[in-house]
Structure formats: structure tokens, C-alpha cells
């Protein structure tokens, strides 16, 4: 069972040595700016940067295989949905129509293919970035990092608590679900919808009471150790910025500046050279 839902793998690569704050800022900045861009050149550049980071962080294919497949399936389903609902969306976006195949409403056009390819790259480019972030960041540094970028320490600590309790809740969940099966609830795919709803309720009720009790106990324990006393709190895992952090941030700023330039030059989010 994977107790470490973040999937953190300790290591010594240059990316491991960046502070949690740096990685968080770069991850958020690049994914958000990447989602805004429809410039194929830029998206491919970002993907290459992310893949290089993945390589530098020495992450193995086995660690990321499942997630890559999941995202690919998710992407393909979405691409098909787009085609089903708006087969001529690319034509509408780019203002030209080059039919490659078939005719009528569902005619396959070059513009549609080009648009869907961009979307595909958009779905995928963030995956290596997220993997680098998740696999090289100690969850404790993550919370400290959130606080450092200006999020209230209470909210940052709520995130830390979520990460702390996910493995516990997962064990409770699995125990409850096995106990319910033993008592005769059918949770398998064969059961009727109604039976499965009742089964779900059989899991939710004990989980609800256990979690609400947990909330009481944990908040008392935190009060007894003075959580929330000061305007600020310090973090055991706070890290100070080193030169590589500034270099990495500088690199990210350069990438964002490039996007701004491209937006201005393309006169919009799309780049369509044809």
C-alpha cells in the first residue's frame, strides 16, 4: 500500500535541492501560463523543459507509468468529445477550412486536427511538471512553501493536515469497506445500483463519525500546543533560498516573459502559421 500519497522520493539531484517554495512557485506559474497559451511552439518548449527536469531528477519510468496512461486515456476521451460536439471548432477559430476527409458536418478538417493536437499537448505538458514537483518535494516543505508565498499559515497547515491524515483515513476506509463486505454488503460491480448505494452509506456513516471525532481530538491537541497563538508561525522545515533557487526562478521568469512576447506578437492566444 502506498502510504506516501504525494509519492515523495528522497534524493540529491539539483531539483531535490531547490526549496519547496521555489518548486511550488515554478510549478504553479508554468502550469497556469501553459494553460493560457495556445502557441504550439511554446507548449512544446515547456514540455521539453519539463521532460529535462524529469530526467535530471532521476525519476524512473516505473514511478510514473500509471499516471501517464491515465492522463493519456483522459486526454483521448476529451479529444473525442470535442470532435463529437464541435467538429468544426478549429475552422471557426482559425477562419479557414481545409477538408482532409469526408464531408458535411463531421468532415475532418486540418484546422480541427491542428486545434485538437494543441489541446492534446496542453493536457500532457503539465504531467511531467507535476510529477517532478510531487516526487521531489517533501510534503512538509510543501506546507511551509505555501505559507511563504503568502497563503495564510492556517490554510497552509490545513493542507499539511490533509496530507498527514490521508494515509490514516485510507486505512480506516479500507477496514470499514472490508468489514461491510464481511457483514454481507455487496459492493462489487455485479450488485444493483440500489444495493451499492446502501453499501456506500454503510461505509460513509462510520467514516463520518470517526472523522468528526478525530476533528475534535486533533483541534484540542493543537490548542494545547498553542496553534494559532501568534500572527506568524515558523516552520521546522523552512528553508532559506540559495543561489540555485534564484537561478531557477529567473529561468521561470524568462519563460513567462517569452509567453508575454508571443501573446503580443501573435495578437492573441493562438498561433496559426498556415
Amino acid at each position: 500500500m502506498n502510504h506516501n500519497i504525494f509519492g515523495f522520493h528522497p534524493g540529491t539531484s539539483i531539483i531535490h535541492r531547490l526549496t519547496g517554495t521555489t518548486k511550488l512557485v515554478i510549478f504553479l506559474a508554468l502550469t497556469i501560463f501553459g494553460s493560457l497559451s495556445f502557441d504550439l511552439r511554446y507548449l512544446i518548449l515547456l514540455s521539453v523543459v519539463a521532460l529535462v527536469a524529469l530526467y535530471v531528477a532521476k525519476i524512473k519510468w516505473a514511478d510514473v507509468r500509471t499516471i501517464v496512461w491515465l492522463v493519456t486515456i483522459f486526454a483521448v476521451i476529451n479529444l473525442m468529445l470535442i470532435y463529437v460536439f464541435a467538429p468544426q471548432y478549429g475552422v471557426q477559430l482559425f477562419g479557414s477550412k481545409t477538408v482532409l476527409f469526408g464531408s458535411g458536418h463531421y468532415a475532418l478538417t486540418f484546422e480541427q486536427l491542428y486545434y485538437e493536437f494543441i489541446v492534446f499537448v496542453k493536457y500532457l505538458f503539465a504531467v511531467p511538471l507535476a510529477l517532478v514537483f510531487l516526487l521531489t518535494t517533501n510534503p512538509s516543505e510543501f506546507a511551509a512553501g505555501l505559507n511563504r508565498i503568502g497563503i495564510s499559515y492556517r490554510v497552509a497547515y490545513a493542507v499539511a493536515l490533509a496530507l498527514r491524515y490521508i494515509p490514516d483515513i485510507q486505512v480506516s476506509y479500507q477496514t470499514i469497506s472490508k468489514v461491510q463486505q464481511a457483514r454481507g454488503h455487496d459492493l462489487s460491480k455485479k450488485a444493483s445500483l440500489w444495493k451499492r448505494l446502501k453499501g456506500a452509506l454503510g461505509i460513509m456513516v462510520p467514516l463520518m463519525f470517526a472523522s468528526l471525532n478525530q476533528i475534535d481530538a486533533v483541534s484540542q491537541a493543537m490548542d494545547l500546543r498553542r496553534f494559532g497563538k501568534q500572527k506568524r508561525r515558523t516552520w521546522y522545515y523552512a528553508q532559506s533560498f540559495a543561489r540555485i533557487d534564484w537561478l531557477a526562478l529567473g529561468f521561470a521568469v524568462a519563460l513567462i516573459a517569452l509567453e508575454m512576447y508571443l501573446l503580443w506578437q501573435n495578437g492573441g492566444r493562438f498561433w496559426y502559421p498556415f
Binding site: 490545513a158 493536515l161 483515513i169 476506509y173 460513509m204 476533528i215 493543537m222 490548542d223
Partner: peptide, 17 residues
């Protein structure tokens, strides 16, 4: 503090479900 904890544990349960 209780709201912070409710957010943390509430989120953990949300994700597991």
C-alpha cells in the same frame, strides 16, 4: 483551530472518497 482541522481532515476524507 477547529476550522483548520475540519478543513484538513475533511479534505483527506474527500480525497479518499
Amino acid at each position: 483551530t477547529k476550522a483548520v482541522v475540519a478543513t484538513g481532515i475533511g479534505t483527506a476524507v474527500f480525497i479518499i472518497l
